[in-house]
Protein backbone atom coordinates (compact mmCIF):
# COMPACT_ATOMS: atom_id res chain seq x y z
CA UNK A 1 0.00 0.00 0.00
CA UNK A 2 3.03 2.30 0.33
CA UNK A 3 3.10 3.11 -3.39
CA UNK A 4 -0.63 3.90 -3.25
CA UNK A 5 -0.10 6.46 -0.50
CA UNK A 6 3.02 7.85 -2.18
CA UNK A 7 1.05 8.46 -5.37
CA UNK A 8 -1.61 10.32 -3.39
CA UNK A 9 1.01 12.56 -1.80
CA UNK A 10 2.64 13.35 -5.15
CA UNK A 11 -0.73 14.14 -6.73
CA UNK A 12 -1.65 16.47 -3.87
CA UNK A 13 1.72 18.25 -4.06
CA UNK A 14 1.05 18.99 -7.71
CA UNK A 15 -2.34 20.58 -6.98
CA UNK A 16 -3.53 23.31 -9.34
CA UNK A 17 -0.31 23.56 -11.36
CA UNK A 18 -0.13 19.80 -11.80
CA UNK A 19 -3.81 19.60 -12.81
CA UNK A 20 -3.46 22.44 -15.30
CA UNK A 21 -0.56 20.70 -17.07
CA UNK A 22 -2.39 17.37 -17.15
CA UNK A 23 -5.54 19.06 -18.48
CA UNK A 24 -3.52 20.82 -21.19
CA UNK A 25 -2.09 17.50 -22.42
CA UNK A 26 -5.63 16.08 -22.47
CA UNK A 27 -7.06 19.13 -24.30
CA UNK A 28 -4.32 19.09 -26.97
CA UNK A 29 -5.19 15.48 -27.70
CA UNK A 30 -8.91 16.20 -28.06
CA UNK A 31 -9.09 19.75 -29.49
CA UNK A 32 -5.69 20.19 -31.19
CA UNK A 33 -2.16 21.39 -30.37
CA UNK A 34 -3.13 25.07 -29.91
CA UNK A 35 -5.31 24.28 -26.87
CA UNK A 36 -4.60 26.26 -23.70
CA UNK A 37 -6.12 25.90 -20.23
CA UNK A 38 -7.42 29.09 -18.64
CA UNK A 39 -9.32 30.19 -15.52
CA UNK A 40 -8.79 26.92 -13.64
CA UNK A 41 -10.65 27.30 -10.35
CA UNK A 42 -11.60 24.90 -7.55
CA UNK A 43 -15.37 25.06 -7.03
CA UNK A 44 -15.88 22.79 -4.04
CA UNK A 45 -13.78 21.00 -1.51
CA UNK A 46 -15.89 17.96 -0.76
CA UNK A 47 -14.14 15.13 1.05
CA UNK A 48 -15.23 12.62 -1.57
CA UNK A 49 -14.89 14.75 -4.68
CA UNK A 50 -12.97 17.68 -6.15
CA UNK A 51 -14.80 19.88 -8.65
CA UNK A 52 -12.82 22.30 -10.83
CA UNK A 53 -14.02 24.76 -13.48
CA UNK A 54 -11.75 25.66 -16.42
CA UNK A 55 -11.77 26.86 -20.01
CA UNK A 56 -10.02 25.52 -23.07
CA UNK A 57 -9.01 28.37 -25.41
CA UNK A 58 -7.11 28.50 -28.70
CA UNK A 59 -9.71 26.20 -30.27
CA UNK A 60 -12.06 28.74 -31.88
CA UNK A 61 -14.86 29.42 -29.41
CA UNK A 62 -13.44 28.64 -25.99
CA UNK A 63 -14.99 25.65 -24.21
CA UNK A 64 -16.21 26.02 -20.61
CA UNK A 65 -15.71 22.70 -18.84
CA UNK A 66 -15.84 20.97 -15.45
CA UNK A 67 -13.37 18.46 -13.99
CA UNK A 68 -14.67 16.00 -11.39
CA UNK A 69 -11.76 14.33 -9.67
CA UNK A 70 -11.08 12.04 -6.73
CA UNK A 71 -9.18 13.95 -4.00
CA UNK A 72 -5.54 14.06 -5.07
CA UNK A 73 -6.58 11.99 -8.10
CA UNK A 74 -6.85 8.86 -5.94
CA UNK A 75 -10.14 7.34 -4.85
CA UNK A 76 -9.42 6.62 -1.21
CA UNK A 77 -11.84 8.93 0.60
CA UNK A 78 -15.06 8.06 -1.21
CA UNK A 79 -17.68 6.50 1.01
CA UNK A 80 -18.33 2.80 0.59
CA UNK A 81 -21.65 3.26 -1.17
CA UNK A 82 -20.56 5.91 -3.68
CA UNK A 83 -20.01 4.66 -7.23
CA UNK A 84 -16.65 5.29 -8.93
CA UNK A 85 -16.10 8.35 -11.09
CA UNK A 86 -15.86 6.12 -14.18
CA UNK A 87 -19.28 4.67 -13.30
CA UNK A 88 -20.64 8.18 -12.73
CA UNK A 89 -19.42 9.17 -16.20
CA UNK A 90 -21.05 6.06 -17.72
CA UNK A 91 -24.34 6.91 -15.97
CA UNK A 92 -24.23 10.46 -17.37
CA UNK A 93 -23.81 9.01 -20.87
CA UNK A 94 -26.68 6.55 -20.32
CA UNK A 95 -28.89 9.34 -18.97
CA UNK A 96 -28.14 11.49 -22.04
CA UNK A 97 -29.19 8.57 -24.27
CA UNK A 98 -32.45 8.31 -22.28
CA UNK A 99 -33.18 12.00 -22.96
CA UNK A 100 -32.38 13.20 -19.43
CA UNK A 101 -30.76 16.65 -19.37
CA UNK A 102 -27.16 16.06 -18.23
CA UNK A 103 -23.76 17.55 -19.10
CA UNK A 104 -21.97 15.80 -21.98
CA UNK A 105 -18.92 13.81 -20.82
CA UNK A 106 -15.83 14.69 -22.87
CA UNK A 107 -13.24 12.48 -21.25
CA UNK A 108 -12.60 9.91 -18.51
CA UNK A 109 -9.20 9.59 -16.81
CA UNK A 110 -8.08 6.41 -15.07
CA UNK A 111 -6.39 6.03 -11.68
CA UNK A 112 -2.60 6.16 -11.97
CA UNK A 113 -2.57 8.62 -14.89
CA UNK A 114 -1.38 12.26 -14.76
CA UNK A 115 -4.83 13.55 -13.97
CA UNK A 116 -5.71 10.64 -11.72
CA UNK A 117 -9.21 9.22 -11.38
CA UNK A 118 -11.43 11.86 -12.94
CA UNK A 119 -13.79 12.81 -15.73
CA UNK A 120 -14.39 16.00 -17.72
CA UNK A 121 -17.80 17.30 -18.70
CA UNK A 122 -19.28 20.44 -20.20
CA UNK A 123 -20.25 23.28 -17.90
CA UNK A 124 -23.98 24.05 -17.83
CA UNK A 125 -25.24 27.57 -17.05
CA UNK A 126 -27.83 27.98 -14.33
CA UNK A 127 -28.42 27.89 -10.58
CA UNK A 128 -28.15 25.05 -8.05
CA UNK A 129 -28.95 26.90 -4.80
CA UNK A 130 -32.46 25.97 -3.64
CA UNK A 131 -33.32 29.31 -2.07
CA UNK A 132 -32.40 31.25 -5.22
CA UNK A 133 -34.35 28.89 -7.47
CA UNK A 134 -37.41 29.24 -5.23
CA UNK A 135 -37.26 33.00 -4.67
CA UNK A 136 -35.29 34.89 -7.35
CA UNK A 137 -37.33 36.61 -10.08
CA UNK A 138 -34.96 35.18 -12.70
CA UNK A 139 -36.35 31.67 -12.02
CA UNK A 140 -40.04 32.66 -11.89
CA UNK A 141 -40.61 31.18 -15.40
CA UNK A 142 -38.92 27.90 -14.34
CA UNK A 143 -40.95 27.25 -11.18
CA UNK A 144 -44.36 26.41 -12.75
CA UNK A 145 -42.82 23.94 -15.25
CA UNK A 146 -40.13 22.37 -13.05
CA UNK A 147 -42.25 19.62 -11.42
CA UNK A 148 -43.31 18.18 -14.80
CA UNK A 149 -39.72 18.46 -16.10
CA UNK A 150 -38.50 16.56 -13.02
CA UNK A 151 -41.17 13.90 -13.67
CA UNK A 152 -39.98 13.44 -17.26
CA UNK A 153 -36.32 13.35 -16.21
CA UNK A 154 -37.03 10.72 -13.54
CA UNK A 155 -39.05 8.61 -16.01
CA UNK A 156 -36.00 8.66 -18.30
CA UNK A 157 -33.60 7.68 -15.52
CA UNK A 158 -35.88 4.88 -14.32
CA UNK A 159 -36.25 3.52 -17.87
CA UNK A 160 -32.47 3.08 -18.33
CA UNK A 161 -31.48 -0.41 -19.48
CA UNK A 162 -29.80 -1.94 -16.41
CA UNK A 163 -28.05 -4.60 -18.48
CA UNK A 164 -26.08 -1.95 -20.37
CA UNK A 165 -24.90 -0.11 -17.22
CA UNK A 166 -21.79 -0.76 -15.12
CA UNK A 167 -22.27 -2.81 -11.93
CA UNK A 168 -24.17 -0.75 -9.32
CA UNK A 169 -25.03 -1.30 -5.65
CA UNK A 170 -28.52 -2.68 -4.99
CA UNK A 171 -30.55 -1.04 -2.23
CA UNK A 172 -34.30 -1.25 -1.59
CA UNK A 173 -36.33 0.36 1.18
CA UNK A 174 -35.81 -2.36 3.78
CA UNK A 175 -32.04 -2.43 3.07
CA UNK A 176 -31.95 1.30 3.79
CA UNK A 177 -34.03 0.99 6.97
CA UNK A 178 -31.63 -1.66 8.28
CA UNK A 179 -28.56 0.35 7.36
CA UNK A 180 -29.72 3.61 8.93
CA UNK A 181 -31.20 1.90 11.99
CA UNK A 182 -27.81 0.29 12.71
CA UNK A 183 -26.06 3.68 12.43
CA UNK A 184 -28.65 5.35 14.70
CA UNK A 185 -28.42 2.58 17.34
CA UNK A 186 -24.61 2.76 17.38
CA UNK A 187 -24.81 6.43 18.50
CA UNK A 188 -26.81 5.41 21.61
CA UNK A 189 -28.76 8.68 21.52
CA UNK A 190 -32.34 7.35 21.75
CA UNK A 191 -35.03 9.47 20.08
CA UNK A 192 -38.64 8.27 20.48
CA UNK A 193 -39.79 9.87 17.20
CA UNK A 194 -37.16 7.90 15.27
CA UNK A 195 -38.26 4.69 17.04
CA UNK A 196 -41.86 5.35 16.07
CA UNK A 197 -40.89 6.07 12.45
CA UNK A 198 -38.73 2.92 12.25
CA UNK A 199 -41.52 0.75 13.68
CA UNK A 200 -44.16 2.28 11.39
CA UNK A 201 -41.99 1.92 8.26
CA UNK A 202 -41.28 -1.75 9.07
CA UNK A 203 -44.97 -2.49 9.74
CA UNK A 204 -46.23 -0.82 6.55
CA UNK A 205 -43.89 -1.66 3.66
CA UNK A 206 -45.32 -0.83 0.23
CA UNK A 207 -45.73 -3.57 -2.39
CA UNK A 208 -42.39 -3.86 -4.18
CA UNK A 209 -41.83 -2.37 -7.63
CA UNK A 210 -39.58 -3.77 -10.39
CA UNK A 211 -36.01 -2.58 -9.70
CA UNK A 212 -34.77 0.38 -11.76
CA UNK A 213 -31.80 2.75 -11.94
CA UNK A 214 -32.27 5.18 -9.03
CA UNK A 215 -30.37 8.50 -9.04
CA UNK A 216 -30.18 8.44 -5.23
CA UNK A 217 -29.88 12.19 -4.54
CA UNK A 218 -32.42 13.84 -6.87
CA UNK A 219 -33.26 17.20 -5.20
CA UNK A 220 -32.62 20.95 -5.39
CA UNK A 221 -28.91 21.41 -4.85
CA UNK A 222 -28.09 18.66 -7.32
CA UNK A 223 -30.16 20.07 -10.20
CA UNK A 224 -29.05 22.94 -12.44
CA UNK A 225 -32.04 25.17 -13.11
CA UNK A 226 -32.05 27.81 -15.84
CA UNK A 227 -34.72 30.53 -16.21
CA UNK A 228 -36.62 28.23 -18.60
CA UNK A 229 -36.43 25.22 -16.27
CA UNK A 230 -34.43 22.04 -15.62
CA UNK A 231 -31.06 22.29 -17.37
CA UNK A 232 -29.14 19.39 -15.85
CA UNK A 233 -29.21 16.52 -13.34
CA UNK A 234 -25.90 16.33 -11.41
CA UNK A 235 -24.23 14.33 -8.64
CA UNK A 236 -24.82 10.71 -9.57
CA UNK A 237 -22.45 9.25 -6.98
CA UNK A 238 -25.25 7.71 -4.88
CA UNK A 239 -26.87 5.98 -7.89
CA UNK A 240 -28.04 2.43 -7.26
CA UNK A 241 -30.55 -0.16 -8.37
CA UNK A 242 -33.76 0.11 -6.36
CA UNK A 243 -37.31 1.42 -6.11
CA UNK A 244 -38.41 4.28 -8.42
CA UNK A 245 -40.50 5.84 -5.64
CA UNK A 246 -37.30 6.59 -3.68
CA UNK A 247 -36.26 9.31 -6.17
CA UNK A 248 -39.78 10.77 -6.44
CA UNK A 249 -40.12 11.00 -2.65
CA UNK A 250 -36.61 12.34 -1.92
CA UNK A 251 -37.28 15.64 -3.72
CA UNK A 252 -40.51 15.89 -1.64
CA UNK A 253 -38.72 15.63 1.74
CA UNK A 254 -39.44 18.90 3.55
CA UNK A 255 -35.73 19.53 4.21
CA UNK A 256 -35.41 20.10 0.41
CA UNK A 257 -38.38 22.51 0.15
CA UNK A 258 -36.28 25.34 1.63
CA UNK A 259 -39.17 26.85 3.59
CA UNK A 260 -41.80 26.56 0.84
CA UNK A 261 -43.59 23.72 2.65
CA UNK A 262 -46.86 24.21 0.74
CA UNK A 263 -45.29 22.95 -2.51
CA UNK A 264 -44.57 19.27 -1.93
CA UNK A 265 -42.13 18.83 -4.81
CA UNK A 266 -38.94 20.68 -3.88
CA UNK A 267 -40.83 23.75 -2.64
CA UNK A 268 -41.84 24.64 -6.23
CA UNK A 269 -44.45 22.18 -7.50
CA UNK A 270 -47.27 19.82 -6.68
CA UNK A 271 -46.81 16.08 -6.68
CA UNK A 272 -49.61 15.30 -9.15
CA UNK A 273 -47.90 17.46 -11.82
CA UNK A 274 -44.72 15.42 -11.36
CA UNK A 275 -46.57 12.07 -11.30
CA UNK A 276 -48.66 12.94 -14.42
CA UNK A 277 -45.57 13.89 -16.41
CA UNK A 278 -43.76 10.78 -15.12
CA UNK A 279 -46.60 8.56 -16.37
CA UNK A 280 -46.91 10.40 -19.71
CA UNK A 281 -43.19 9.79 -20.26
CA UNK A 282 -43.68 6.05 -19.78
CA UNK A 283 -43.39 5.58 -16.01
CA UNK A 284 -45.89 3.88 -13.70
CA UNK A 285 -48.72 6.23 -12.58
CA UNK A 286 -48.12 6.26 -8.83
CA UNK A 287 -50.68 7.59 -6.38
CA UNK A 288 -49.52 10.40 -4.06
CA UNK A 289 -50.18 8.09 -1.08
CA UNK A 290 -47.64 5.62 -2.49
CA UNK A 291 -45.02 8.34 -2.04
CA UNK A 292 -45.80 8.87 1.69
CA UNK A 293 -43.87 5.79 2.89
CA UNK A 294 -40.78 6.76 0.91
CA UNK A 295 -40.98 10.41 2.01
CA UNK A 296 -41.13 9.21 5.64
CA UNK A 297 -38.06 7.06 5.05
CA UNK A 298 -36.39 10.05 3.37
CA UNK A 299 -36.97 12.34 6.39
CA UNK A 300 -35.70 9.61 8.73
CA UNK A 301 -32.57 9.12 6.60
CA UNK A 302 -31.83 12.87 6.54
CA UNK A 303 -32.33 13.04 10.30
CA UNK A 304 -29.82 10.23 10.83
CA UNK A 305 -27.43 11.87 8.32
CA UNK A 306 -27.59 15.03 10.48
CA UNK A 307 -26.72 12.83 13.49
CA UNK A 308 -23.77 11.41 11.51
CA UNK A 309 -22.51 14.96 10.84
CA UNK A 310 -22.92 15.86 14.52
CA UNK A 311 -21.10 12.62 15.43
CA UNK A 312 -18.07 13.95 13.52
CA UNK A 313 -18.01 16.74 16.13
CA UNK A 314 -18.82 14.51 19.12
CA UNK A 315 -16.04 12.08 18.22
CA UNK A 316 -13.51 14.89 17.83
CA UNK A 317 -12.96 14.25 14.11
CA UNK A 318 -14.24 17.73 13.14
CA UNK A 319 -14.34 20.41 15.84
CA UNK A 320 -16.11 23.04 13.71
CA UNK A 321 -19.08 24.96 15.09
CA UNK A 322 -21.00 24.01 11.93
CA UNK A 323 -20.75 20.27 12.71
CA UNK A 324 -21.80 20.93 16.31
CA UNK A 325 -24.75 23.09 15.28
CA UNK A 326 -26.16 20.55 12.82
CA UNK A 327 -27.00 18.32 15.78
CA UNK A 328 -29.71 20.86 16.57
CA UNK A 329 -31.29 20.33 13.17
CA UNK A 330 -32.26 16.71 13.83
CA UNK A 331 -35.49 17.96 15.44
CA UNK A 332 -36.48 19.46 12.06
CA UNK A 333 -36.78 15.95 10.67
CA UNK A 334 -38.62 14.81 13.81
CA UNK A 335 -41.40 17.35 13.26
CA UNK A 336 -41.54 16.40 9.56
CA UNK A 337 -41.86 12.73 10.56
CA UNK A 338 -44.67 13.53 13.01
CA UNK A 339 -46.50 15.64 10.41
CA UNK A 340 -46.26 12.72 7.96
CA UNK A 341 -47.21 10.04 10.51
CA UNK A 342 -50.18 12.10 11.68
CA UNK A 343 -51.40 12.21 8.07
CA UNK A 344 -51.15 8.44 7.51
CA UNK A 345 -52.33 7.24 10.94
Amino acid sequence: MASHIFRAIVAKMGSADHIEKALERWAKGLFGPKSRIEALKRLSGGASQETWAFEVSGVGTSRRLILRRAPGGVAMARSSEAVSLATEAALLAAAATAGVPVPAVLGVSDPGTDLGEAFIMERIDGETLGRKILRDDAYAPARPVLAAQCGRALAGIHAADLASLPALPHSNGLDQINKYEAIYRAFDLPRPVFELALAWLKANPPAPQPAVLVHGDFRLGNLIVAPEGLASVLDWELAHVGDPREDIAWICVNSWRFGQIENRVGGFGDLDSLLDAYAEAGGVRFDTRQIDWWETLGSLKWGIMCMIMYEAFRSGADASVERAAIGRRVSETEIDLLNLLEKVS
Binding site: I261, R328, R329, I335, D336
Partner: peptide, 9 residues
Protein backbone atom coordinates in the same frame (compact mmCIF):
# COMPACT_ATOMS: atom_id res chain seq x y z
CA UNK B 1 -35.43 26.13 20.89
CA UNK B 2 -33.44 24.58 18.03
CA UNK B 3 -34.92 26.14 14.84
CA UNK B 4 -37.97 28.32 15.57
CA UNK B 5 -38.19 29.46 11.93
CA UNK B 6 -38.43 25.94 10.48
CA UNK B 7 -41.40 25.54 8.12
CA UNK B 8 -42.45 22.19 9.61
CA UNK B 9 -42.92 23.79 13.04
Amino acid sequence: IDQPQYSGL
